[in-house]
Design a protein around this nucleic acid. Structure first.
Lengths: 228, 228
DNA sequence: TTGGCTAATATGTCTAGACATAATGCAAGT
DNA sequence: ACTTGCATTATGTCTAGACATATTAGCCAA
């Protein structure tokens, strides 16, 4: 049986977990491990690089490779398009466009997007339904300057989905908070005002500039789960 | 100027974003790209593998490499130890152990951990303080069976931190929800009952079995942010 | 039409060797 | 004591070539 890089990764991980190589310890160099396992150095390198990307090892040239002392645990969140999220839960998906207008955006919005005060943005309000019941209330500010012409009819295609395929997105961030439902949210989602809602706020940057700021208010009981 | 794999990754990404290679399209094979860029196939492979890991490309043997049609956007959450999180915000950190006892855990707890009903677990309640004010209320069930002997005094070392360095952790998951503050939470954190709280629920598995289930109720206004 | 076999092919991985790069620590000079 | 510079060293990356493996398309037979 010949060893592959994944097996070497597994063995290294086992030694770390078994405390053969305790947190903070310097582990043998690639050359030494390559000889021990009877593989080329590149194979060991592949394995160690993967572990470093996972945050288990810290590697520095000349200084060697050591076991992370306080391993920062990383969880990966996969953010699907809402439609697929709903379908993945075995529910039917539908949505309603509640508002679509262009107006001068409030200062907090322009500030978060890095646009000048008073910029005119497109405002969309979309209610996503799962199994016919309110799932997410999406309120979104779109920067019309970076949208391809012609922009579609967002009553027919959800902005959430259209953007992913039609605007080159570069980077963004997402923040989760818990907030009491506003009276508007309570009314639209059919819940009591003040109910605790999980809110995700997303900003997205494209190649041509800031694209959108979206606030997704999830129905009560919603869980956002990640694995690590 | 000679090209490295990161530059090739950047160029491929540029072509994808420029719609030279639109979503769903098959891109040239490694061999062809290697020739075009004047590098070895392994270098192209390194670049494309990285992009595939990032979710931008989908690769299958024989079928070739194509641009992801609905790119799943992935955000990475780095979960630091609470102390470092607080210090990173420029606040002083402190904590108080409010409860520490062993008792038969409720069924939802044992079920989530995959332990038999009625298992006796150690229950810890810790209030984490940032700048002297309540930051996170942590309620944690610990599986004593997998803890090294002797377990430390959790009034002196936060369980949150001790576990990371003393128990080999393998995998786990984290879920965020928004919940109204219970009367206990309201009392301990000095807020009104029913206030919307961002709650993180974490389960962790170790090499020897399930380790812990922790519920972290964050003070109002708390944001969990990720970048992608 | 259906099912299964086969050959072709693109990616996955490995090797052995080379040079690049960054960080460390020692030595020499101020 | 303090800096500066250099040799050392571990990781980072690349090459050229090879074999492994998964998957598909096409073919053939039932």
């Amino acid at each position: 049986m010949t060893l592959g890089w994944e097996e070497i990764r597994a063995e290294v991980l086992r030694r770390i977990r078994a405390r053969d190589w305790p947190p903070g310890a310097l582990i043998p160099g690639e050359e030494a491990l390559a000889e021990e396992f009877g593989v080329a150095r590149a194979t060991v390198n592949r394995a160690l690089t993967a572990l470093a990307e996972a945050g288990v090892l810290e590697r520095r040239k000349r200084a060697g490779t050591r076991v992370a002392a306080l391993p920062v645990r990383r969880a990966r969140l996969e953010i699907p398009v809402i439609r697929l999220d709903v379908l993945g839960r075995g529910l039917t998906y539908d949505f309603r466009l509640l508002a679509d207008r262009e107006e001068a955006a409030p200062v907090p919005v322009t500030a978060r997007l890095g646009l000048p005060e008073g910029a005119r943005l497109r405002y969309l309000e979309t209610l996503h339904l799962a199994g016919g019941r309110p799932f997410v209330l999406e309120t979104r500010w779109l920067n019309p300057a970076v949208l391809p012409d012609p922009a579609p009819d967002f009553a027919a295609v959800s902005a959430n989905e259209w953007l992913v395929t039609h605007v080159p997105l570069v980077s963004g961030d997402i923040a989760f908070t818990a907030e009491p439902a506003s009276s508007r949210e309570a009314e639209v989602m059919g819940i009591a005002p003040g109910t605790a809602l999980l809110v995700a706020e997303r900003t997205t940057q494209g190649t041509l500039g800031p694209v959108t700021l979206a606030r997704l208010a999830h129905a009560p009981g919603h869980r956002v789960t990640m694995t690590f």
